[in-house]
Design a protein around this nucleic acid. Structure first.
Lengths: 155, 155
DNA sequence: AAAACACCAACTAAAATACTCGGAATTAAA
DNA sequence: TTTAATTCCGAGTATTTTAGTTGGTGTTTT
């Protein structure tokens, strides 16, 4: 029941882009360095984010990534699901909202448990916007040199 | 971000005991058969439940397991944590409620995300009691032969 | 032309998961 | 008192997933 490094690193990467793409797009290598993540691994994570329409890339020298939408329009849930797949605690079509393919679907009590967990996770992350994390970060850095790199997205 | 078979099978086992230990203790082999779980694997799961004080065993022939407490006093959270370890989405002392050993503890924004997820999962499962699942199961089986095996804890 | 970048598809090592196996100790019943 | 049914225990193993790495191609600015 743990998030993998995909979700953890990937969210840090998105936050890094949010905090540092005011002027230019940010390159993979700068994110990787700032966040202490291997550049080649990060590449895979960003690919997922791009596919999900969360970030937009520009190729070539001076290229890099920016967010596709405003931070207030990107939920943490959206980001985590792009990286980790669905956040449901079990793989079950019925819980994911689809048709019940489960052969024991009508005699399945634990299903109520998984549904309850799934709903609580999803509502928690869907209601949390990237902008809130950006504000939190700014609050933590009040009084610091604003030109400095903000390496504050650990964990 | 998935529950392992430990949590899924183990909760089914607990529910099976709750539903079938009215008179005698239920043996590993009957749970295993009813739930289609390998007996030797189930053994490991039940050991965790015993260690956590959720079930009580009696050894020897006619031995088996019963719940240590009433179903209304056992939360699903208690069971899942016994089987899976803590349900937090990341391993972080601060989120688990302890001291911050994290070297970036005060510059750690994503921490708020993990805390939020952790809280939502734990409050969901802590407020759900085994007795509610028992009632749900009985409701599903209204009208059936009450002597029949109730194999209704799939998923 | 060269440097800085994104993009892509395999490949691999390590860790975690999901089991199995072989027994020893305990207890009820025949 | 033997036998069968059971819990209990520690170790071993196969499979899957995770967490990367490697070696390249294509694109754009300087």
């Amino acid at each position: 029941m743990k998030l993998s490094t995909k979700g953890r690193y990937g969210l840090r990467a998105v936050l890094d882009i949010a905090l540092n793409s005011d002027e230019d797009a940010v390159s993979l290598s700068t994110i990787a360095e700032r966040q202490s993540i291997s550049i080649s691994y990060l590449e895979q994570l960003i690919a997922k984010l791009k596919k999900a329409g969360i970030v937009t890339s520009t190729r070539g020298a001076k290229g890099g990534y920016i967010l596709s939408k405003k931070p207030s329009e990107i939920s943490v849930g959206e980001v985590l699901r792009a990286l980790e797949g669905n956040l449901d605690p079990v793989d079950c079509a019925e819980i994911a909202g689809g048709e019940s393919t489960c052969n024991a679907s009508d005699v399945c009590v634990t299903k109520y448990v998984w549904k309850r967990i799934s709903d609580s996770i999803n509502s928690a992350v869907n209601s949390l916007m990237l902008s809130e994390l950006v504000e939190e970060s700014n609050a933590l850095h009040k009084g610091e040199n604003s030109g400095k790199v903000k390496n504050d997205t650990m964990c």
